[in-house]
């Protein structure tokens, strides 16, 4: 699964930077937010702010880096055998 990322600013009240995540067919599947250091739960982590399709209604994990977040999303999007 090839994902494309598009940088955005997310209006979380903390001016967090983030990315829109698109799948291979350019469908928006997730919004990842790079949590600021002010966040006391997971500072500096990439947080699944919103998920669509297979990623909707799942848990909202926070990842140590963007690669790990993308791996997790890819696994969730890959067709089940």
């Amino acid at each position: 699964m090839t994902l494309t990322l598009q940088p955005v600013r997310v209006a979380t009240g903390f001016e967090d930077e983030g990315v829109l995540v698109f799948d291979g067919e350019q469908r928006l599947v997730a919004v990842l937010t790079h949590l600021s250091d002010r966040n006391e739960v997971a500072p500096g982590h990439w947080f699944l702010e919103a998920g669509f399709g297979p990623l909707s209604g799942t848990s909202h994990p926070a990842f140590a880096d963007l690669d790990t977040a993308q791996d997790w999303i890819s696994r969730r999007l890959s067709p089940r055998v």
Binding site: T12, G13, F14, L35, R38, N39, E40, V41, A42, F47, H60, A62
Partner: peptide, 12 residues
């Protein structure tokens, strides 16, 4: 809501 968001809202 997520714990991450609870933390944001508490801070706000």
């Amino acid at each position: 809501i997520t714990t991450v968001h609870v933390n944001r809202v508490l801070q706000q």
